[in-house]
């Protein structure tokens, strides 16, 4: 009932902005859904896209619509139901959505939208207080092997990227992910304070959360989840270098509506690619400190499928999904 009503809101809204256009027409207008409240990461991505698209006159009329709630799954459900076949509708999403779909038992999944491209991403990092006895990833691994429950991890909400990454690490070194002693915090500031105050053994979150503290000598970063060392922290080894086979990226992507024609998909992909290569967009990424991890086409589809499979497995092993 409510879903129908909500669907109707969007349908009505879309009807106004989307006159029926043939498949061959240029993309003149776009409606980007940010499945989050204004101000959050996905909203900022959507609004940055809006700016970049309009700055370079790629698309003259771009609207952003916020539908917050439940890790993006409410917006996703509304998008799938109301935008079917609409070549002017886009949705911003991210890796967090993959986990949220599984843990919230969402009736719609990412397989129901048409992924266009991965735009940006952040890598996870593990940090300990400067006075911690753990000096390297190897020390942490040793502590985990001795007794995983004695190692407390601070990170974001349960089932989020941080939790998944911690679970993957414990699994990779042969531990039981169920014994992961993960302490969830609702805000970055609060979890960072608990690490700085030495209340927890280690923290796991995106590198940008810890970077400034590490540069000031208050935190030590043990490793990052990227494939290669990162330019922001060239001295920090990757997990793989330290013998922990975990690679994870908290990415953000853009997807189109379900049921659009291959031509329409191609057109939207071209627009997004042009945007991702534009100066306006790259400037914006630099300004916000977001890494350019653009990936499109089949390569992205493959990566997405792999991420979904790995996440499903680890969430089951942590005990968050059945």
């Amino acid at each position: 009932m409510t879903k129908m009503l909500r669907g109707a809101v969007v349908a009505a809204a879309l009807a106004s902005f989307v006159p029926f256009v043939g498949a061959q027409a240029e993309v003149t207008e776009l409606k980007i859904m940010a499945p989050a409240a204004p101000g959050g990461g996905w909203d900022q991505t959507a609004r940055s896209m809006q700016q970049a698209l309009q700055a370079d006159k790629l698309v003259s009329n771009v609207q952003v619509l916020n539908v917050p709630g439940a890790g993006g799954t409410i917006g996703l459900a509304q998008f799938v139901n109301a935008s079917k076949g609409d070549p002017h509708a886009l949705i911003v999403g991210g890796y967090v959505m993959v986990g949220a779909i599984i843990t919230n038992k969402s009736p719609v999944t990412l397989s129901q939208v048409t992924p266009i491209a991965r735009l940006t991403g952040e890598f996870e990092a593990i940090a300990v207080p400067a006075n911690s006895p753990l000096k390297s990833m190897a020390d942490l691994v040793a502590a985990l092997k001795a007794d995983p429950s004695k190692v407390s991890w601070a990170g974001g909400s349960a089932g989020g990227t941080d939790h998944i990454a911690a679970g993957l690490i414990l699994k990779a070194i042969g531990g039981d992910p169920k014994k992961l002693n993960y302490i969830a915090f609702s805000g970055g500031g609060e979890s960072l304070a608990s690490i700085l105050g030495g209340k927890v053994t280690a923290g796991i979150s995106s590198l940008s959360e810890y970077d400034a503290q590490a540069k000031a000598g208050k935190l030590r970063i043990l490793g990052v989840s990227s494939a290669k060392r990162l330019p922001e922290a060239p001295d920090v080894p990757t997990f793989k270098e330290s013998g922990v086979d975990v690679e994870i990226q908290n990415w953000r992507m853009v997807a189109a509506a379900p049921g659009i024609t291959p031509e329409q998909k191609k057109e939207l992909s071209e627009v997004v690619e042009k945007m991702a290569k534009s100066k306006a967009w790259t400037d914006m990424l630099k300004q916000k400190g977001w890494a350019d991890t653009y990936l499109a086409g089949e390569a992205f589809d493959k990566q997405l499928a792999a991420d979904i499979a790995a996440t499903t497995t680890v969430l089951k092993e942590i005990g968050l999904a059945q």
């Binding site: 400034a212 540069k215 300004q287």
Partner: peptide
């Protein structure tokens, strides 16, 4: 003093700092 955003508004102000290339944090 530490670059810790402990409220929603503080988190957004932090984003504001970052926008101007300032390194939020103890420095």
């Amino acid at each position: 003093t530490l670059g810790l955003p402990t409220s929603a508004t503080a988190a957004i102000m932090l984003a504001g700092f970052q926008q101007y290339g300032m390194n939020p944090g103890p420095l």
